[in-house]
Amino acid sequence: MSRILVVDDDRAVRVLLKSILVKDSHEVIESPDGSSALVATREERPDLILLDLMLPDYNGLEVLSALKEDRDLEAIPVIVLTGSSDRQSKLTALSSGAVDFISKPFMSEEVLLRVNTQLKLHNLIKSLRVAVDNLQSDVLAAGRIQAALVPQNALQGLKMEWIYSPSYRVGGDIFDVVKLGEEKFFVYLADMSGHGVNAAMLSVMVHRFIEDYRGGIGEGEFDLKDFMAELDGNFKFEKFNLFFTIISMIIDTSSKKLLLCNAGHPSPMLMENERLRVLENKEGLIGMNMIRGSIEEINLSEGDRLILYTDGFTESTNEDGEMFGEERLRNILLGCRDMSLSATIENLRDRFEKFKGSKKAEDDVSLLLIEF
Rank of each mutant, 00 (worst) to 15 (best):
T41M: 08
D86Y: 03
D70A: 13
K90F: 05
K68G: 13
S36K: 07
E62V: 05
R42S: 13
I76Y: 07
V39F: 08
I49Y: 06
T92Y: 06
E62T: 08
L94Q: 02
Y58F: 14
E44N: 05
L64T: 05
R87E: 15
V63G: 04
I76K: 05
Q88W: 11
L48I: 04
P56Q: 03
R71P: 15
S35W: 00
L61N: 02
D33V: 01
A37Y: 10
D57F: 09
R42W: 03
D57S: 09
A75Y: 06
L67E: 01
I79Q: 07
L51S: 06
R45C: 07
L94H: 04
S96Y: 09
L73C: 05
A75K: 03
E74W: 11
D86F: 06
Y58K: 11
D86R: 10
P46N: 07
S36V: 08
S85V: 09
G34W: 12
V80E: 05
L64P: 06
D86G: 07
A40H: 04
V39G: 02
R71C: 10
P46G: 06
A40D: 01
P77D: 13
V39D: 09
D72A: 11
R87H: 14
T82P: 14
K68A: 11
A98H: 08
L94R: 03
P77F: 10
S89F: 06
P77S: 14
P56T: 01
S84T: 13
V63M: 02
V39Q: 12
L91Q: 12
R42Q: 10
P56R: 00
D52R: 00
L48Q: 06
L67A: 01
R45K: 15
A93F: 10
V78K: 12
D86A: 09
L61S: 01
T41H: 02
P77T: 13
E69G: 15
T82K: 15
D86H: 05
R45Q: 12
D70M: 08
L64E: 04
I49R: 04
I49T: 07
D70Q: 09
S89R: 09
A93K: 10
L67G: 00
A75C: 05
L61T: 01
G60D: 08
K90N: 15
N59D: 14
V39R: 14
A75S: 11
R71V: 14
T92R: 12
D47N: 15
L38M: 14
L91S: 12
Q88Y: 12
P46K: 02
D33N: 10
D70K: 10
D100C: 00
T41P: 00
S95N: 11
D52Q: 02
N59L: 07
S35T: 07
S85M: 06
D52L: 00
T82I: 14
L61W: 01
S35K: 04
G97E: 15
T82Q: 13
V39E: 13
D72W: 04
L67W: 00
D100V: 00
S85H: 08
A93N: 09
L64S: 06
N59C: 07
T92W: 03
D70T: 10
L55Q: 03
L73Y: 03
T41C: 06
S84L: 14
I49V: 15
I79F: 07
S35D: 04
S84W: 06
V99D: 11
S89N: 14
E69H: 12
M54N: 13
A98Q: 11
R87I: 15
E69Y: 08
L50N: 03
L91E: 14
S35Q: 05
L64C: 06
